Simulated assay, not measured.
Amino acid sequence: MSSSLRELLSNPLLAEQLLSEAQTRGFVTAMAAAPHLLDPAEWLAFLWGGEETAPFASQEELEAYANAIVNMWNESREALLGGTWQWPEGCALDDKELVTEDTRDFAEGLLQGWQLARDDWETVMPEDSENSALLGGVLLCFSLLYDPENAIDALAQEGADGLAQFEEIFASVPMMLCGLTMRGYELVNADAE
């Protein structure tokens, strides 16, 4: 994350109005993974709650924020399509809480972003298609990471070693998210031909 974006997100006047750093990364990653390119002008305001008026003190601050978000989107899109995307710094498993707060926040941001691209995903990967299973698997992983305590309980009720399964889920997310992004990209481009 750029230092200018980190500064803006840590500004006490903006911190209450903008998604946190990890939530922002999750949201932007969801936008970068979307099968159709979504213009940032369509979704940028969701990073401050969807309000018409941006919470920035000046036009320059808004432009700096928007440019940093677009740069983050570009980096994420390239990594997802290149199969090199990895969990951002701070996202990890945690001995006490199962996952770090950043992991939960990233998952929350990604799930919020997915809601904006949901129609595109469901069009490209209809419910009864084999691709739908890939989409469902990725969403399930992020839902479990957002609420790990209930995930561990559910896995244990199914007779699985909840913690071991949870570690596997966390470790598999980068590959699954890259695979989903690449598959969505392939499907959209196949339809365009």
Rank of each mutant, 00 (worst) to 15 (best):
I69F: 01
S132Y: 06
A79N: 12
G109T: 08
F170N: 05
E186T: 09
A54I: 08
D120L: 09
A107G: 03
R77K: 11
K96Y: 05
Q165L: 07
G49Q: 06
A66T: 15
D119T: 14
L13H: 13
D95W: 10
S172H: 06
M176H: 03
F56K: 05
E61I: 04
Q157W: 04
D39S: 11
D102V: 07
P126L: 08
L5I: 10
L80K: 07
P126H: 04
L93H: 04
L140C: 01
R104W: 01
W85H: 07
E16C: 00
P55G: 09
G49L: 05
I69L: 08
V188E: 03
N189H: 13
L38Q: 14
P174S: 04
L144A: 14
D39V: 09
G113C: 09
A190T: 13
L187Q: 07
L62P: 00
L134V: 09
Q23I: 03
E167W: 00
L98R: 12
S3H: 11
P174Q: 04
E78S: 13
S2A: 12
L135W: 01
N71T: 15
M176Q: 12
N150D: 14
P174W: 07
P148W: 04
V188P: 01
S20N: 06
F142V: 08
A92G: 05
D191W: 07
V188R: 04
A15M: 10
D153A: 15
L5M: 11
L98W: 08
V124W: 01
L37I: 14
T100K: 07
A15N: 02
M31F: 02
M182C: 07
M176E: 10
L38T: 15
E61G: 00
E42I: 12
F170Q: 03
Q112L: 15
V188Y: 02
G162K: 06
V99L: 05
G136T: 06
A30I: 08
F46K: 13
E127I: 11
Y65T: 07
S20L: 06
K96C: 01
E158W: 05
L177H: 02
N67C: 10
M182E: 13
S3G: 04
E127P: 01
L155Y: 07
A92P: 00
A68G: 06
E51F: 02
N150G: 15
S4I: 15
L62D: 07
Q115T: 14
E42W: 09
D191A: 15
Q17M: 12
G90K: 10
W85I: 04
A92F: 10
A154Y: 04
A34H: 03
C178S: 11
W43C: 02
M175S: 12
S4E: 13
W87Q: 05
F27W: 05
D147W: 00
T29I: 03
E51S: 12
R104Y: 01
T53E: 15
G159I: 05
R183S: 03
L155H: 03
W121V: 03
A117R: 02
Q115G: 12
R118F: 02
E108K: 14
D95A: 13
E78W: 00
L81P: 06
S58E: 09
C141G: 09
W43G: 02
A54S: 13
G184T: 02
P148D: 08
E51C: 00
